[in-house]
Amino acid sequence: MDTMCAFELKRPTNVAEASALLAKPNARVIAGGTDLVPNLRRGLDAPATLVDITGIAALTALDLDRAPRVIGAGATLAHLAGDPRIGDEYPALAQAAAEVAAPAHRNAGTLGGNLCLDTRCVFYNQSEWWRASNGYCLKRRGDTCHVAPHGKRCHAAFSGDVAPALIVLGAEVEIASVDGMRRLPLAALYRDDGAKHLALAPGELIVAVHVPPAATGSHSAYGKARVRGSVDFPLAGVAMAVAFDGARIARLDVALTGTNSNALSLAGTETLVGRAADDATLAALGNLVAKQVSPMRTTVTASNYRRRVASVLVQRLLRNLAAEHATD
């Protein structure tokens, strides 16, 4: 692999200091570094300054006793996967965090870094000379997309596991910059453009995620297909939150990762409200997913497989959560 580009590393101890540093040109956030460092080593960016936020104690705090719950963007995935309070109230979140990469990545990797993960593509996550010999591509330094050469946009896939879980749980992100704070529904953080998939302005820092308390009787889960069960990005990942009224669906939210350039919120789930989670409902839900996902040839695995497995995963989740509800 290529060696590292040179940069200046800053380690602020509070958010105001971090925001001031990030306001400078060509500065970039680094948290656990498990996505950014491999990318820098492949020449996918060359920042002048990296602002390491792991020294900011306030960012790792969790406040789970008030509504909404507040989870600091610096909390590690190992923490989210292992905290029983998260597992009890938000199974989808704990499961998604536990399914990211392998233990050593989760010890370093943070919630904020996972939400802001760069999009992925077989033509992009390659060394500098590999990409150079291929004429680069639209996402960086080139002018054609090798996946869809006639199009004008990049289709690299958003592949973070945690975003869909937090989207179905109704989360908002809290964003800081030198101009102050703002809040955004998590789903609105993402855009379906692989080269510019985050709705963050330069210099903005995610400081926390706000999650409403889970309604009593609601259920949630996350399911993922990957090449190796022990470590790999999702070929498709599906999060679901559902509430039942007796045996009938009272509310259903589904979000996906690995299939589009954004974390995708599934539209049309309200058409299934009032129905039992029977075979016909499962098939209808599977169809909604198959129609809305648009996996492109950004992975070695065929895109049609990713579409089909997403549709299978969503049906499996609903069947399992309906069974969980029945035994409550």
């Binding site: 380690r11 050593a104 990545h105």
Partner: peptide, 11 residues
């Protein structure tokens, strides 16, 4: 456990 190849020493 941490992966030393993707960890900045100064971090």
């Amino acid at each position: 456990p941490r992966l030393a190849c993707i960890t900045l020493a100064a971090s």
